[in-house]
Design a binder for these strands. Structure first.
Length: 873
RNA sequence: GGGCGAGUAGCUCAGCUGGGAGAGCAUCCGGCUUACAUCCGGAAGGUCACAGGUUCGAGUCCUGUUUCGCCCACCA
């Protein structure tokens, strides 16, 4: 087959992608698994999602792991799927409705939900297609959706069980309310942002005359005030406890209570209490049995409790309240003040805390079990430092508000009787039965209108995806999973909750290792976001560079820090590298033709021994790095082996032998074949393409066995290092002394080791080619031509006869530079060795090493001086 | 307010349990060498943020300072 001079990723990837689809190579065994199972569940992307850099990184790395394991011989199964993403998806569809001038209420619940399903059918597979384009080797036959029938069954099962165990309860508590989405959201869905606003100092008249001044950032909430609180230990105000004040504007009577939560240092030291709209006030209200007055409608406008302000939106009400206070002479001052205000994660609207009846999960017990699982090592975080954050969150966990006033999602499986009694059930029929048993007769039931938080289905993902609550074959074979890889942004939302759910329902951890990836930031180090317009579209990068280049660049750039920059120059590097791989394949095929030489049993030539040794070392290193999830180090080891050891040195040295030497071809080919296999987990497309071109077995490289490391060959590597030093030495001399490019000086090497001399002699033509030199002589005691340029080597000395090509003075300057450096090195080594404490306390091997260094440098200095004097002064 | 991460060559970063400062890109110089100019060869470039400390020895361990970034948080 004729290969193009440049690697063309786009064509190849499309072709290979089809090949994988048709070949079902990523299908994992069902039922009895004879190999060691290794499973991963994908963090399900939102159906509304498009691939972003975070996805590309995370799924690229998961694919590296799963492909490595598959080749290593495990029964590797990567379970894919998508998340219905309640609020996010509902918002998307509502927005498209808005363009038609409609709201979901115009359609009604059923029609609206159908619209979302239609939307999902049309657009929901986009991200899956993008993952496939990235090369993800998921078992697509096992793809699931968090709102499909099976997972919905799991959700109902879990809800009912938790309800029966009293771990789910319903009640009126202070929750985070988004007036735009008109739903409650959990604490985690609130993003805090610092806002410049004012601290309003308001006078509250006292019944006994006079007034107290209260500072607030939300003056409109005074409409819901039902008390005033002071710290009972605060001398200034303690005497007021038990007295009453009057609420300005609405003229409500407000008891003054003592509460130690009040910080005398903050504001005026007096706190207005609005139990319906503030978390602290809510608590104080409960302990003092205060009335709660909700002043807000669901859309954030003031309700009938707001008196003259009823019907206004929040902002207007705030201004008007302030105006009114000012007019009444009750506003003392407004102090500029910057503080954190909660915003809806999905729509950035300011969150209003308010009292609302919602469903909650009792988290304490679940969290304790999850803490224990990490503490005793059943689950391990990589990098380890994330453990602390996980622990902190779980130790301070609060109950989870799981009900949402949305339509898109799992409807809460609770039915209410005429008197409001709740029946949690798997189905309407079961609810009816339960109700019948309870009331002794058939009654009309109404299902709860709300749906569950999206995360209430995804926290079950690692086992619901395998068919739970059935005792499925997959659960037996693949649960618990081995590895989870995700970003830290969903550590609380998802990771910790999966651990809790798994421990509770499966009595086991969901996964053993959690790898937390860094956050990808833009080239300037800024967080990428749509609104900033600085996000990078990985699909664009894949179009330009290819999926493999993107994967390699990301794997290579992955560090264990908290952030990593989106690759830029690394993409060029990766593309260039793949082109290099492609071209060396062309080179190898040029020489092997259709022959597919087997791996040679024994080799004699130095370069063959060397490259096989390096291959072994690299194989060992790469395997270790993959096992430890050091993706960047694995990529680096492969990059440097392929480019430098194989292409730059081995191929160049072996060239003269390729015309006739079959064993050379064998080694050349064997190493390439291993290289392709070693690289496959990171760059699957190009390696599969090469595999096909080579016509190797098995059919797909994705099912080939990952290379095993053999013994390394120290002697060969040492001798090769000497050869490399000689070649580099000549090149340096040529460059430093401006030897004309066409000139072919003769050269001599003086070395003591006879085996090395033999190896060098065997490679003379290669050395000549690599250095563009004429005749060489190698021996223990060569006689340099007068005026030769000289280089002191670790193994001996190099002489290049450039006498009539260069300026002798230039060579003197060069040698003097080297002498200076050698003297410096010698002085440093000698200095250390003359330190008694060093000799006394440093380990013997370190001292030995220092001694040989000293000897080496001393010899170098001596030789350099001799060389200099031979050039005359 | 609490916590975490980063600060190493012009840029992006690697440096595991402390023992002669590395890579890629960019720069400069030389090469169209028959796999590759997305290439080949060579060179230059660093008080490892700062200040102390431990040690025979610190980029690596400890303390403090500082700059940047992020996460968490019910001081109204």
């Amino acid at each position: 087959m004729e290969l193009s001079k440049r690697y063309q990723p786009t064509e190849v990837e499309a072709k290979i992608h089809r090949y994988w689809e048709e070949g079902n190579f990523f299908r994992a065994a069902v039922g009895v698994v004879s190999k060691v199972p290794f499973s991963i569940v994908i963090p399900p992307p939102n159906v509304t999602g498009r691939l972003h850099m975070g996805h590309a990184l995370n799924n690229g790395l998961q694919d590296v792991v799963i492909r490595y394991r598959r080749m290593k011989g495990d029964e590797a199964c990567w379970f894919p799927g998508t998340d219905h993403a309640g609020i996010a998806t509902q918002n998307v569809v509502e927005k498209s409705l808005a363009k038609e001038g409609l709201t979901r209420h115009d359609l009604g619940r059923e029609t609206f939900v159908q619209r979302v399903w239609d939307w999902k059918a049309k657009y929901g597979s986009e991200i899956i297609e993008q993952l496939k384009a990235l090369g993800c080797s998921c078992d697509w036959s096992r793809q699931r959706f968090t709102l499909d029938e099976g997972l919905s069954r799991a959700v109902r099962e879990v809800f009912v069980r938790l309800y029966e165990e009293d771990l789910i309860y319903r009640g009126a508590y202070l929750v985070n309310w988004c007036p735009r989405c008109e739903t409650a959201v959990s604490d985690l869905e609130v993003e805090h942002e610092d806002i410049d606003s004012g601290l309003y100092h308001i006078r509250y008249p006292l019944e006994e005359g006079g007034h107290v001044v209260i500072a607030t950032t939300r003056p409109e909430t005074m409409l819901g005030d039902t008390a005033i609180a002071v710290n009972p230990d605060d001398e200034r105000f303690a005497h007021l406890v038990g007295k009453t004040a009057r609420l300005p504007i609405l003229d409500r009577e407000l008891p003054i209570v003592g509460a130690s939560d009040v910080d005398p240092e903050f504001g005026t030291g007096v706190l207005k209490i609005t139990p319906a709209h503030d978390p602290i006030d809510f608590e104080i209200g409960r302990t003092h049995n205060l009335e709660s007055i909700n002043i807000l409608n669901n859309d954030g406008t003031i309700n009938e409790n707001g008196g003259p302000f009823a019907g206004m939106d929040r902002e207007t009400a705030r201004k008007d309240v302030v105006e009114r206070l000012k007019a009444d002479g009750l506003l003392e001052e407004v102090v500029p003040y910057r503080h954190a205000v909660g915003h809806c994660e999905r729509c950035s609207t300011a969150i209003e805390p308010l009292i609302s009846t919602q469903w909650f999960v009792r988290m304490r017990g679940l969290a304790d079990a999850a803490l224990a699982a990490v503490k005793d090592g059943r689950i391990e975080f990589v990098p380890e430092r994330w453990t602390k954050l996980y622990n902190d969150w779980l130790e301070n966990i609060r109950d989870w508000c799981i009900s949402r006033q949305l339509w898109w999602g799992h409807r809460i499986p609770v039915w209410y009787g005429p008197d409001g009694h709740a029946f949690a059930a798997h189905s309407p029929e079961e609810a009816a039965e339960k109700a019948h048993a309870h009331y002794g007769e058939t009654v009309a039931l109404n299902q709860d209108e709300d749906v569950l938080d999206t995360w209430f289905s995804s926290w079950l993902w690692p086992f619901s995806i395998m068919g739970w609550p059935d005792e499925s074959e997959d659960l037996k074979a693949y649960f618990p999973t081995d590895f989870l890889l995700t970003g830290f942004d969903i550590l609380f939302f998802w990771v910790s909750r999966m651990i809790m759910a798994s421990l509770h329902f499966m009595n086991d951890v969901p996964f053993r290792t959690v790898y937390i990836t860094p956050l990808i930031v833009d080239a300037q180090g800024q967080k990428m976001s749509k609104s900033k317009g600085n996000s990078v579209d990985p699909m664009e990068l894949m179009k330009e560079y290819g999926a493999d280049a993107l994967r390699l660049a990301l794997a290579h750039a992955t560090s264990k820090g908290r952030t990593m920059r989106t690759p830029t120059t690394q993409l060029d590097d990766a593309r260039n590298f793949l082109n290099k791989l492609w071209n060396v394949t062309r080179f190898v095929l040029m020489h092997t033709g259709d022959a597919r030489p087997g791996a040679p049993d024994t080799v004699d030539a130095l370069e063959d021994r060397y490259i096989l040794s390096r291959l072994s070392e690299t194989t060992k290193t790469v395997r270790e790095h993959f096992e430890a999830y050091n993706f960047n180090l694995a990529a680096e080891a492969l990059y440097s082996f392929v480019w430098h050891d194989y292409c730059d040195w081995y191929v160049e040295i072996v060239k003269p032998r390729l015309a006739s030497d079959e064993s050379a071809k064998g080694v050349l080919y064997h190493v390439l074949r291993d290289i392709v296999k070693l690289l496959h987990p990171i760059v699957p497309f190009i390696t599969e393409e090469i595999w096909q071109v080579l016509g190797e077995e098995p059919e797909s490289i994705s099912r080939a066995a990952y290379p095993e490391a053999r013994a390394s060959d120290r002697d060969a590597e040492t001798q090769m290092a000497a050869l490399q030093e000689i070649v580099t030495g000549v090149r340096t001399i040529r460059a430093d002394l401006n030897v004309p490019a066409k000139a072919q000086p003769t050269a001599k090497v003086s070395v003591a080791s006879q085996p090395l001399i033999d190896a060098l002699k065997a490679n003379e033509s290669a050395i000549r080619a690599m250095t563009n030199t004429g005749e060489w002589s190698f021996g223990p005691d060569v006689d340099p031509a007068p005026g030769s340029a000289r280089k002191v080597l670790a193994c001996g000395q190099l002489f290049v006869d450039v006498a009539d090509m260069i300026d002798i003075e230039a060579e003197k300057v060069r040698l003097q530079g080297e002498l200076k450096q050698a003297k410096k090195d010698l002085a440093q080594a000698s200095g250390k060795l003359s330190n008694e404490n060093f000799l006394k306390r440093a380990p013997e091997d370190v001292v030995q090493k220092e001694r040989s260094k000293q000897a080496e440098f001393a010899q170098k200095v001596e030789r350099l001086e001799a060389n200099l004097s031979s050039l005359g002064t």
